[in-house]
């Protein structure tokens, strides 16, 4: 089998997960997307391990470890999300803006500052690209 198949599939899965992490509002959906990204990596590890015929099967061992770490991560992440939900009554990621500078607003900005956030994202993105 061509190595390109699993590699391309892994890349696409990873980017799908990436989109989910960046675009989803609910924290649990973000965690699902993180799982997708991890699985894409796992697929890569397995495919390259099979291709390289590693004597120690480092790729597969590492995949197992990754799965275990992912399980731990999902446990901790879920605990955090529940805590956030308990404290704030919502698990929306874009509501967690306590680190923002708030000169005149209240402590929590209103629910959906979509225009505001995309406005803010654009100059910042341009700046990041300019510095890169």
């Amino acid at each position: 089998m061509h190595l390109a198949y699993p590699a391309v599939l892994a890349a696409l899965l990873f980017c799908t997960g990436l989109y989910g992490v960046l675009a989803r509002r609910n924290a649990i959906l973000v965690l699902m997307s993180v799982e997708l990204m991890l699985n894409a990596v796992n697929l890569n590890l397995v495919a390259f391990d099979v291709w390289l015929r590693d004597a120690l099967h480092a790729g597969q061992a590492l995949t197992l470890f990754t799965i275990a770490v992912a399980a731990a991560e999902i446990g901790i992440g879920m605990a955090i999300v529940l805590l956030v939900y308990r404290n704030r009554g919502s698990s929306d990621i874009d509501g967690l803006r306590d680190t923002a500078e708030q000169p005149d607003d209240g402590p929590e900005p209103p629910d959906d500052p979509s225009g505001d956030s995309s406005d803010a994202a654009r100059p910042a993105g341009q700046k990041a690209e300019a510095t890169a």
């Binding site: 390109a4 590699a7 391309v8 890349a11 696409l12 990873f14 980017c15 799908t16 990436l18 989109y19 992490v21 960046l22 675009a23 989803r24 509002r25 609910n26 959906l29 929306d92 990621i93 874009d94 959906d112 500052p113 979509s114 225009g115 505001d116 956030s117 995309s118 994202a121 654009r122 993105g125």
Partner: peptide
């Protein structure tokens, strides 16, 4: 269900996918 960050996220994801697929 989607946050206001959708369009930037789509752009970043597609760019990353294109780069990765191309390289791979």
């Amino acid at each position: 269900a989607d946050s206001g960050n959708r369009l930037p996220a789509l752009a970043v994801a597609i760019a990353a996918a294109a780069a990765l697929v191309w390289v791979v």
